[in-house]
Nucleic acid binder design. Structure first.
Lengths: 243, 243
DNA sequence: CGAGGGGTTGACGCCGATCAAAGCTGGTGG
DNA sequence: CCACCAGCTTTGATCGGCGTCAACCCCTCG
């Protein structure tokens, strides 16, 4: 079952301690950007900071723990499990994204299962804390809205790019997404395993493998180091359009 | 080009006059639910009320008029036009939904083209008015967030239900969506034309037609009156799962 | 060294895209 | 009132892409 095999790790998640939002060096990227430092002085419930290994299940669809999560670093996949046992990856989120926001809208449970794709560094924020901060600082509401709008844009792109066209076009689009949103400073990105790529595009694993292997042979996609890859963006854009 | 042929109507849109939000009988369904009546006394820019015939283009992707829209009654499709000329319908929205919200998040232009599917009754709200109301009534921010969360849920459902599985499963899911979200009091719903159904599911028009015709022969789907249809929900749910 | 998990490749058959043509239906004009 | 037309729907025939089953390779780990 792919990365889910790491599920046993989730109890081993390394607790990094209480978060110090007022001293957070990446706060401008996060949900609490623009809140004043003083906003965090009298929180009723603590914000904790965790490091999860790849494959960890952050939460499961249908369950209800009163936390949302803000991703500091790493990739998280939101998975929908169909009744026939197959999985579909609905969204892939990275640095600065917040997940579990459906709880703020009154949903009693998470809508998806959230799984760490690589090592994930995140803050776990009690819903009650968000509500407290929202009431004291209405600006936070807008940032939640911005998160939702961003995710809506991603979902729309998913429908258009990964849900349409021939298999080769979809895989090309997927690689472009990885390159654009998940590459490191050097432009290299982690190539997901074939099962995850299949679950994102709605294509059979073998077909994905064939196409990826073809891209590698054509040098459109090539290993940079370890599991990091680089790609020929122009060639992939051409493929994603015409095939 | 299907309903887009009605594009010429858009200049004929019937202006129904200034909206009277304080007297609106369906405000509890709309964006401005829970705002006090007094909120609308000193608006800088007016809210107008329109009636659009089927096929009207409400706005086009990439353009930027400073308005969002709140749908009082009717169905609107959000369309993404691919560079190869094909269209993909990204979302179908109905009574109580707001569209064009991306403008509130700072987007310079609409992300999709919005087209009336049937007769659409809506309010056209200047962005400046929303901002004014938001600053005076922070609660409005939450309602915008709720709209976004709703649309995100719809987009996720779209990915899972209409972007996955065999053609027959997708068409079954689509009919169920129409039945669930767009049926009248009597349980009958408008069956979209085949081209729109194809653009929603990513299937060829002929294949959709074959499957719909098959459903009709099996009496799983039958005409109620005019273009209104009814369906056997249980049978379609079975089909949507196993095929 | 063997076991196991992922990735790659081959063979085959079916689903669905495509091209083509024939019903249907509602609207228009004689 | 009927003939005609245009657009949509339905159906047929054909073919290629991709899902499926299966084997094999490669790498890691015990």
């Amino acid at each position: 079952m792919g990365n889910e095999s790491g599920q046993s790790f989730c109890t081993n998640a390394e607790w990094m301690g209480r978060a110090h939002c007022d001293k957070c060096h990446i706060r401008q990227l996060m949900l609490f950007s623009e809140l004043p430092d003083t906003a965090f002085e009298h929180l009723l419930a603590p914000i904790d900071h965790f490091l999860y290994p790849p494959g960890s299940v952050l939460y499961e669809a249908g369950t209800h723990k009163p936390f949302i999560y803000s991703i500091r670093r790493g990739m998280v996949k939101l998975v929908h499990a169909a009744q026939d046992g197959s999985n579909r990856i609905v969204r892939l989120l990275g640095n600065g994204s917040a997940i579990g926001l459906e709880l703020l809208d009154g949903s009693k449970s998470y809508h998806h299962t959230a799984i760490a794709v690589n090592q994930v560094d995140l803050c776990k924020i009690p819903v009650s804390t968000v509500r407290q901060l929202e009431s004291e600082h209405p600006a936070l509401c807008k940032h939640v809205g911005k998160q939702l709008q961003d995710q809506l844009n991603i979902a729309d792109q998913w429908i258009v790019a990964l849900g349409t066209g021939a298999a080769r076009q979809r895989v090309a689009q997927l690689v472009l997404v990885l390159e654009e949103f998940f590459s490191e400073d050097n432009g290299a990105f982690i190539l997901l395993n074939r099962e995850d790529m299949a679950a994102m595009t709605g294509i059979a694993v073998e077909t994905v493998s064939r196409i990826v292997a073809e891209f590698k042979r054509q040098k459109i996609l090539y290993r940079f180091k370890d599991n990091f890859y680089m790609c020929n963006v122009a060639a992939l854009q051409e493929l994603s359009r015409y095939g």
